[in-house]
Design a protein around this nucleic acid. Structure first.
Lengths: 199, 199
DNA sequence: TTTATTTATTAAACTAGTTTAATGTTTTGA
DNA sequence: TCAAAACATTAAACTAGTTTAATAAATAAA
């Protein structure tokens, strides 16, 4: 387990990537987080629960996914070190979540509660900007993914995934990658074979 | 053409749906918008341009879409009265847009420039919250659409579209609806026939 | 009002991706 | 370290959705 001071270094760096925030405000904001260890295969959130946190991953790997009425899983996103995780819908509206958040590796996160986040919005004016900017960036990325899913074949989506997230590729099974791309692992096997033959 | 005072009523109502803002601040913010008429089939934004505005639709209908390298169109969203339109990526990063925004009917929008929006962020503290909250809601909606596209057949996506946006259905061609759902208009015809037979 | 253009429908051949199932491989856990 | 479970691969039959093309219907333009 990493020491909490060391972990907030990552968080502070991440904040600085989005906005410029005084050392004092940064310190006050980071003090609102608490560390939690999530062992592999355990859940930070399950469908039906109300999401009480917003999290920043400092170690490990999570998947955020939905299970449809036929029992198939769709992965909304993966989160490794330096990524944020939450069910933004359940967190803000305080409604039961339709998502699962599961650790795929032994993981560590910094969590902030809804109450403390509201405290930050009320008392640290720049925090509102931080989350506006971050949500915008996340939204732009999802818009691009939406367009890709509407227009590209599974093969080119897979190739682009391998180019965009090479570090994730090593850490994920084909089943997980398929659930992100929207295809079965069987078809992903075919794609991989086809690509291998080409080379 | 509607009078500008009348149009800002819609804008004020829309703001009030997201946050509570004093009459004074509402007034100051709304004064930053200017009205523009966009005739049917003309463009508010074209690929390659830098998006200089954020817009609020007070009349008419727009589509925000991308054209892929094979010349096919993917519709990111439609916007009718009370919807906001922009290319958030191009607007914030000031990079060339990959999107087109086209009026499908004679339309009216209230536009705010980047400079005036930054003025609002700097001087009207609640405006930061307004756009954080709106971006969050938009993002939640896109997350749901993403999951639907990963898990549901075109037929059920079409049925859900007709249930969710009955007022849009009347105003759009099958070609537009198909480009939103990610299917060809030929296949959409098949779906419509199949549904009609069922009834 | 007539003509040109866009849109919707249908059919038929095709392709991308699924399903089921069998087999071998890797990982996990007691 | 051994057995069980999870994962990856392959094949074969199948289905959802595309492509091309022809025809009819609706809309727009002159």
């Amino acid at each position: 387990m990493t020491c909490i001071l060391q972990m907030t270094v990552l968080l502070k760096q991440n904040i600085a990537k989005h906005i410029s925030l005084s050392a004092n405000e940064t310190q006050q904001f980071c003090a609102l987080f608490e560390q939690k260890l999530i062992p592999k295969k355990s859940f930070l959130l399950r469908e039906g629960e109300i999401c009480k946190f917003e999290g920043f991953v400092t170690k490990g790997l999570f998947r955020v996914y939905h299970i449809d009425k036929n029992g198939f899983e769709q992965i909304l996103y993966f989160a490794i070190e330096n990524w944020w995780i939450t069910d933004i819908d359940s967190f803000t509206a305080e409604t039961p979540s339709q998502l699962f958040i599961e650790a795929l590796e032994d993981s560590e996160v910094l969590l902030i509660s809804k109450k403390d986040k509201e405290f930050a919005y009320a008392n640290l004016p720049q925090i509102e900007k931080l989350f506006r900017v971050m949500t915008q960036k996340t939204h732009v990325a999802l818009q691009r993914r939406m367009i890709d899913n509407l227009s590209k074949t599974a093969e080119s989506r897979y190739i682009e995934f391998t180019e965009k997230y090479p570090q994730l590729l090593q850490r994920l099974s084909n089943i997980q990658i398929g659930a992100y791309l929207g295809i079965t692992n069987v078809f992903l096997s075919n794609i991989r074979k086809k690509i291998a033959v080409k080379k």
